[in-house]
């Protein structure tokens, strides 16, 4: 477990804050991390962006933002924020790069979880 937390820490995550929120329940925290990497909000966000459904795209991005904040996934939180703010202002243009970066970050998280699986 400590390897995983170390990797997350190194990536820039706020593991300490997250653990406070999870009342030091490491197992639950990991379950939540495993849940988030397969969250269908990633995919739905992509579809909404592609189809220029601004409100739906905002909703999914906003949802992910809250989840990342709670899990202390700061790098992903910062990435999704780049989507949330333009979408909140009604702007859905040129967000492909930011979305790609978000997917890459999720892949990275998957790798960390995979490599350090107990």
């Amino acid at each position: 477990m400590s390897k995983l937390f170390e990797a997350l820490d190194n990536w820039g995550c706020d593991v300490k804050g997250a653990m406070e929120r999870f009342l030091d329940d490491e197992e639950l925290y990991v379950t939540c991390l495993e849940t988030v990497i397969t969250d269908d909000a990633f995919e739905k966000l992509g579809v909404a962006l592609e189809q220029k459904q601004i409100q739906a795209a905002f909703d999914y991005a906003h949802t992910l933002k809250g989840v990342f904040a709670n899990l202390g996934l700061t790098p992903m939180f910062l990435l999704v924020e780049e989507l949330v703010e333009p979408l909140r202002a009604g702007n859905g243009e040129n967000l492909e790069t930011a979305y790609e970066k978000l997917l890459e970050a999720n892949e990275y998280l998957k790798q960390i979880l995979g490599k350090t699986a107990c």
């Binding site: 929120r21 999870f22 849940t35 969250d39 949802t63 709670n70 899990l71």
Partner: peptide, 14 residues
Amino acid sequence: DDEKVNRLNLRKIL
């Protein structure tokens, strides 16, 4: 909350 993760988190707290 529609996000399971958030629900789990809140449940844990409360």
